[in-house]
Design a protein around this nucleic acid. Structure first.
Lengths: 127, 127
DNA sequence: CAGCATCCGATAAGATACTG
DNA sequence: CAGTATCTTATCGGATGCTG
């Protein structure tokens, strides 16, 4: 290891594994893109329609970052009009497991979280 | 449900369960705080030392957000000097599972991600 | 079709200093 | 001890318009 004593729990170290992953899936669109591509490859505008409400610039940024991280491949077909396919790599597909677990947790517990928020905010309002 | 047709895969809907959770653990310190509190309750400055490098203002923000979401409890002891204990709730503790899975995934795959980044950046540099 | 360029506003995060 | 107040910077996400 060249990472020093403990790259595991270090929010500063840009190579802390958990940080790398959290920074990627914590952004607004990555998880949605992974979900959209689970069913197979899609073209840029298909992805855009599927994800819904994302500006092209932002989708491009997201896609580039994911490509850079090896989560998906970008295939440009030499045609007119252009056709670009995005597809999950094995690495990207393997992320659907952990994300699914997070989503399951979220769906079973979000009720409690929202209730807790409401209670907390009500206390604050009362003062 | 009062959430409309599909709150599940909607990055806009602030009540989309996955978004709620991702927004919380995606921030820089929440995951670290949960990790720090896994071993039991800690006081503010213990937490601060354990987490490392976090400004008091930011730690307070993180803790308040987590308290609001019901992930931890904040207990003020009426003493001089003041003593405040932070402790995971059952809800907060139950998040350690999904986070652990994500961390495991991260640790086994971060090498590939970093390698992919290096390769990608090298291509970019070559041009 | 698949983007790139440009500009903008909101928010996150941090540094620093002060207080009940 | 456990914060709060204030200021500054960096980044994100988005709107709009243009192009190979």
């Amino acid at each position: 290891m060249t990472d020093g004593p403990d790259a595991r729990g270090d929010a500063f170290n840009p190579e802390c594994p958990t940080r790398v992953v959290l920074d990627r899936i914590g952004d607004k669109w990555t998880a949605l893109v992974i979900g959209a591509l689970e069913g197979g490859s899609l073209r840029f505008n298909e992805l855009r329609a599927r994800v819904g409400g994302v500006a092209p610039k932002v989708l491009t940024q997201t896609l580039r970052a994911m490509e850079r991280d090896g989560l998906l491949t970008r295939t440009v077909h030499a045609q007119v009009p252009p056709r670009v396919d995005y597809e999950l790599t094995d690495l990207g597909a393997s992320l659907t497991g952990p994300i699914g677990i997070l989503t399951d947790w979220a769906e079973t517990h979000v009720g409690g979280i929202l209730a807790s928020r409401a209670a907390y905010d009500e206390q604050a309002d009362a003062r």
